[in-house]
């Protein structure tokens, strides 16, 4: 299984977020716009960080915002938000965040293969910087190796 497509409306370039909640909600809106989730999914992504801390900042400058599968996930989806100003999430090593990847999956088992594809991209330590500097959605898709439509 490959990663879901990344349509234009699931990408936000140069977003202004005043804090980490705003940055995560931006990714939530992008997932909702692209038809992957209902609006409530953003609340659950924020709640995961409120409950467990900033562990979602899994590499320098990169947050993988996500929540468990639920009725607010319509279909598996991915969204990418680049931030105009880096935002601290409260991570001891990997702050501040420049790129938020939003992930919604409908089944916890099925998504491991698609996440492996994401790992291939980010195993390159320069990938986060390149995505943070991308000028448009097409460039982000190119860097992630994703398609615009299924």
């Amino acid at each position: 299984m490959n990663l879901p497509p990344l349509p234009d409306d699931a990408v936000v370039i140069g977003a202004h977020a005043s804090d980490w909640r705003a940055a995560v909600r931006e990714a939530g809106r992008a997932l909702t716009r692209s038809g992957s989730t209902r609006a409530e999914y953003a609340d659950r992504m924020v709640a995961v960080i409120e409950e467990f801390g900033a562990y979602v900042v899994i590499a320098p400058g990169l947050a993988l915002a996500h929540a468990r599968p639920g009725p607010d996930v319509r279909r598996e989806g991915i969204a990418v938000v680049t931030l105009a100003e880096p935002v601290p999430f409260g991570h001891p090593h990997n702050d501040p965040v420049r790129v938020v990847v939003g992930l919604a999956v409908s089944n916890a088992e099925e998504h491991v293969a698609s996440v492996a594809t994401l790992a291939n991209v980010f195993n390159d330590p320069h990938a986060v910087g390149r995505i943070a500097r991308a000028g448009d959605a097409a460039e982000v898709r190119g860097l992630l190796g994703l398609e615009a439509a299924a």
Binding site: V48, Y55, V56, L64, L103, A108, V112, V115, N123
Partner: peptide
């Protein structure tokens, strides 16, 4: 990870890659 998806899956995939480098075999669960 907190939610059991996403981050733990990435960790699983990269732990399997690390085990390959070490030529060790282990089951990695998320």
């Amino acid at each position: 990870c907190g939610a059991g998806i996403g981050t733990s899956a990435i960790l699983k995939v990269n732990a399997e890659r690390a085990l390959e480098r070490l030529e060790l075999s282990a089951d990695v669960d998320a």
